[in-house]
Design a protein around this nucleic acid. Structure first.
Length: 497
RNA sequence: UCCUCGGUAGCUCAGUGGCAGAGCAAUCGGCUGUUAACCGAUCGGUCGUUGGUUCGAAUCCAACCCGGGGAGCCA
């Protein structure tokens, strides 16, 4: 069987392709079928004079997403999508599809999400899933090449690990149980057995969050390393991200092109070290005059853009009346684009002053809000790693520095406003300190007995982090919402399909 | 939970107190190089729901339902 992504090896040969009609156009005695087979798209040309009457009838009856087998000669052709086209000699229809709901025109989010099972067939979604696959494979490759052992943490747990987040409650043989929000504590136990481990699995958060960065069910990668301190942890995280990005740029250039991803932004972090700063330094940056100035400049540039767009809109509006039909369509499309951008600018007008206020009035000891992360990361082309957080706002298991004020934790913030993709830390390895921390948090020590055992029987310095897969996919694909980074997202109000 | 925007044909939207509209999809016809093809015709409506104001409501008011974006929280 020949697949579309191998066509370049079969130019001027006769091939048979099996797939689906992605789009269909006809012109009298010519039919153009944009065919997809899961590996890519190619255009098939069926000329009435070149085929039998029954084949012509079959070809004329095709509709979007009909399944079919096509036999024909592969021709190199720059006019055609993918650079090849098939001059068809025979068509076998498997099924003429019913009216396909997702047309090649615009659709709203709700409609597309209700048809997620079909939406996955669309180009952009297809490309995103290919990138997701490449990222998953790169992560396994990265760790396996470094002798990490992949191990699995349980999904049913008897208690909340960090105490803070809301968990999904379920029932485990008449006992209350929760769906795991992290495998980290188990990861620590496994690292004490194997030295270097990582988990790769689903995690669940029941927070009623409705934002572009949240899912109720998402996939997390959590390496845990014995005899690692915070700096080694950070080096590993940086190496891993760089490896993932490099791999995707190398192997999924075509998909990134379909997604219209600006890859210069990704290339920047392959070539340059990540920014590292302490929380205190980050706060200084947020409250600095330079940051205020940057936001003022941003506002000013939005105003100029708005002026230019409004001017353009006036000009093409005048042109519209006397324009030819195709130009009219072009103008109308551009007007929609301008309208959308103006709406965005309008929103920026409301947001930027808030961001500025939040950044300028930031007080040491608070956690960063979404806008603070954005303001911080927009100043760099590479991820920003923030360390030494106020101990009070971080989890009980994080080790503290000598002062006792700072947690040896690290958040890795992705560029371009994609937010936190990694949270990690060096873990507290002292039994007594850990007991104190559990008590301070008001947690029930008895449920942590096994966890405390790790500090009784050959405790060692160790560290780890958690990488959010979907946020990473969104960032590398340049997608604005994590719901497009997983085949069937689970989020507030979305349990089907 | 709170803030904010929205719900009109299968889809995307216009219509802001006076006859329910357009483009796409679908159906029929035309076209031998289309690229979200194009051209002509046909078909297509519980204007989210309930109640209210009005001679008259998609339009104004109230409550509720559903969805988008955001806050909190986080990967």
């Amino acid at each position: 069987m020949i697949y579309i992504n191998q066509l370049s090896k079969h130019v001027d040969e006769q091939v048979t392709l099996k797939g689906w009609v992605y789009n269909y156009r006809s012109s009298g005695s010519l039919v153009f079928v944009e065919m997809r087979d899961g590996t890519g798209l190619t255009q098939c040309v069926i000329a009435k004079d070149d085929v039998s009457e029954s084949t012509w009838e079959a070809a004329s009856s095709l509709k979007q997403e009909s399944s079919l087998e096509i036999t024909g000669t592969v021709k190199a052709d720059d006019r055609s999508i993918g650079g090849h086209e098939i001059h068809v000699s025979d068509v076998t229809v498997i099924q003429i599809a019913e009216d396909y709901p997702i047309t090649p025109k615009d659709h709203g989010v709700e409609f597309l999400m209700n048809n997620r099972h079909l939406w996955l067939r669309s180009q952009r979604q297809w490309a995103a899933m290919r990138v997701r696959n490449e990222i998953i494979f790169a992560i396994h490759t990265f760790f396996q090449e470094r002798n990490f052992v992949q191990m699995d943490s349980p999904i049913f747990t008897g208690n909340a690990a960090e105490g803070s987040t809301t968990l999904f409650e379920t029932e485990f043989f008449e006992e209350p149980a929760y769906l795991a929000q992290t495998g980290q504590l188990y990861g620590e136990a496994m690292a004490m057995a194997h030295g270097l481990i990582y988990t790769f699995g689903p995690t669940f958060r029941a927070e009623k969050s409705k934002t572009r960065r949240h899912l109720s069910e998402f996939w997390m990668i959590e390496p845990e390393m014995a005899y690692y301190d915070l700096e080694m942890d950070m080096n590993l995280a940086e190496d891993m991200i760089r490896f993932i990005v490099k791999t995707v740029l190398d192997k999924r250039a075509n998909e990134l092109k379909i997604l219209e991803r600006d890859t210069t932004k990704l290339q920047a972090l392959v070539d340059n070290p990540f920014i590292r700063m302490t929380y205190t330094e980050a706060v200084d940056i947020l409250t600095s005059k330079a940051t205020a100035q940057m936001l003022d400049d941003m506002l000013a540039s939005r105003k100029e853009e708005e002026k230019a767009l409004k001017k353009e809109r006036e000009e093409i509006k005048k042109e519209h009346g006397s324009a030819k039909k195709w130009r009219k369509k072009q103008i109308e499309a551009r007007q929609i684009e301008i309208g959308a951008r103006l709406d965005q600018i309008e929103e920026d007008y409301r947001n930027i002053p808030k961001w500025k206020k939040s950044a300028q009035e930031f007080e040491w000891g608070n956690d960063f809000g979404g806008s603070d992360e954005t303001v911080l990361t927009m100043q760099y082309d590479v991820p920003v790693m923030v360390t030494h957080w106020p101990a009070e706002i971080k989890a009980f298991y994080m080790k503290r520095d000598e002062s006792g004020k700072h947690a040896l934790g690290v958040d890795v913030l992705a560029p371009e406003g994609y937010g936190e993709i990694i949270g990690g830390s060096q873990r507290e390895d002292d039994l007594e300190v850990m007991r104190e921390r559990i008590a301070e948090e008001g947690l029930d020590e008895s449920v942590f007995e096994w966890y405390l055992d790790l500090r009784k029987f050959g405790t060692v310095p160790h560290a780890g982090f958690g990488l959010g897969l979907e946020r990473t996919v969104a960032w590398l694909c340049g997608l604005s919402h994590v719901r497009e980074t997983i085949p069937f997202p689970r989020m507030m109000g979305r349990l089907t399909p």
